[in-house]
Amino acid sequence: MDLSLTTRAIGEHTVLEVGGEVDVYTAPRLRERLVELIDGGARRIIVDLGRVDFLDSTGLGVLVGALKRLRPVNGSFGLICDKEPLLKIFRITALDQVFPIYATLEAAISADSSGSGSGE
């Protein structure tokens, strides 16, 4: 399944819903979209991985890149993911210690609004 990207605003948060396969071929499109959002002024970004079927190291690198871009501008970056196969990928790479990861959108917004999900 090809990559799908949908953006919506919820209050001060920008939610990027990602679907399909994020791999060495499609990850550049995800990177472009995240860079567009940040360059366009988005500072509180939540990436919803709920419809992602496949995620490889290139996709993980893109997510880390967005996190690093947001740091100097005091932004926040969180992930929504409740699929065990994807969560295992974050654990194995130790990236679960880098990203705030939430099971639901509500949890992500709530945590970020209270300041605990500041993206390190």
Partner: peptide
Amino acid sequence: ELADEALTDEALTVGVGFAL
């Protein structure tokens, strides 16, 4: 080191890929 500012995207992807 994963989110270290000095780490290039390429080095990160290689490291993460090997970890996987």
